[in-house]
């Protein structure tokens, strides 16, 4: 394999990993606050649809991206109201949110399957983009790719280097103690849930505006579920979420290359490989049970309300 092929593979890997990075980072913050939202797939696809609608109607791709994030956050608000204010079961509500989102987007999106869109283009920075190797590898993506990596840095910094991040984690560990210290547990959880929704919406917008600029019913095709799994297998650590997402994208692209080169491995096995490889690697690097217990938010999924305590 020559360097050129390798570069092309790496570029394709990054592009494939972006929706997972967005959605999984968002869910990571949600779960760190002690809330389990299984509705990522639903929020993602609603974000994809509304971003697409705005892009198709106005041609404003930035506005469209923003609306995609807002649409995801709106879905998250529904989830927040039901689980945080009404204290319903988080697992059931999250599942319902996904089913609702998939159905709603299919209904509203009917008229938009026919629309062809000029999506978000890859950057073409003078000089930088045309540098050998580095140009392709670092300076030739669309802007949302850079935003995803910026989000990674921001989330990591927020969770571990800021006071607000510490409070968020405290809420996820022991909401009652945080409450006793005077922190507004429900409000903090609402904010986390909204952030998670916006990130899932961004993942959707990336799919429908940049990656495959089209709208089709069910176009997220399970990426929300993969993002959810990544958070758990990465033991709630942003760095490992990033590794997991890139690994998943990388193995997906690599197995396509292997097929294209005509290597004799059954394609059904190759299709399974990204899931298998990601799980194995993440399980291996996170195999210390003590560390997992340390990272897993202790109150994950448990309803909490200040009037109960």
């Amino acid at each position: 394999m020559d360097t050129n092929t390798l570069i092309l593979m790496l570029v394709a890997t990054v592009a494939a990993a972006i929706p997972l990075i967005f959605a999984a980072l968002g869910e990571l913050v949600v779960e760190k606050s002690g809330v389990l939202n299984l509705g990522v797939e639903g929020m993602m696809i609603v974000g994809a649809l509304f971003a697409f609608i705005v892009a198709a109607e106005t041609g404003q791709l930035w506005l469209a991206t923003l609306v995609g994030a807002l649409a995801g956050a709106t879905m998250a608000l529904i989830f927040g109201f039901i689980t945080l204010s009404l204290m319903a079961n988080q697992v059931a509500t999250g599942l319902a949110l996904t089913i609702f989102g998939v159905g709603l987007s299919a209904f509203i999106g009917q008229g938009y399957t026919s629309v062809a869109l000029d999506g978000i283009k890859n950057l073409d920075i003078p000089v930088l983009s045309s540098l050998p190797v580095v140009g392709k590898l670092l300076f030739s993506y669309n802007i949302l790719v850079y935003l995803a990596f910026a989000a990674f840095i921001a989330v990591t910094w927020f969770l571990y280097k800021t006071r607000a991040g510490l409070i968020l984690r405290a809420v996820g560990e022991s909401p009652s103690s945080a409450h006793a210290l005077g922190y507004r547990v429900i409000r903090i959880r609402y904010l986390a849930v909204l952030f998670g929704g916006a990130m899932a919406g961004l993942a959707g917008a990336y799919l429908s505006l940049a990656y495959t600029p089209l709208w089709a019913e069910g176009m997220t095709a399970g990426r929300g579920w993969i993002a959810l799994a990544l958070v758990v297998f990465a033991t709630w650590r942003p760095g490992r979420v990033l590794i997991g997402a890139l690994l998943f994208g990388g193995v997906t692209i690599a197995q396509f290359h292997v097929q294209g080169l005509g290597v004799e491995i059954p394609s059904q096995f190759l299709s399974m490989l990204p899931y298998l490889a990601t799980i194995i690697v993440l399980v291996l690097i996170s195999r210390d049970a003590g560390v997992i217990r340390l990272n897993a938010p202790a109150s994950l999924g448990q309803p909490w309300h200040n009037e109960l305590h």
Partner: peptide, 12 residues
């Protein structure tokens, strides 16, 4: 039907 994977295969 999976637009993302179809794209990845096409690009490959």
């Amino acid at each position: 039907f999976d637009p993302g994977r179809e794209r990845e295969a096409a690009v490959t």
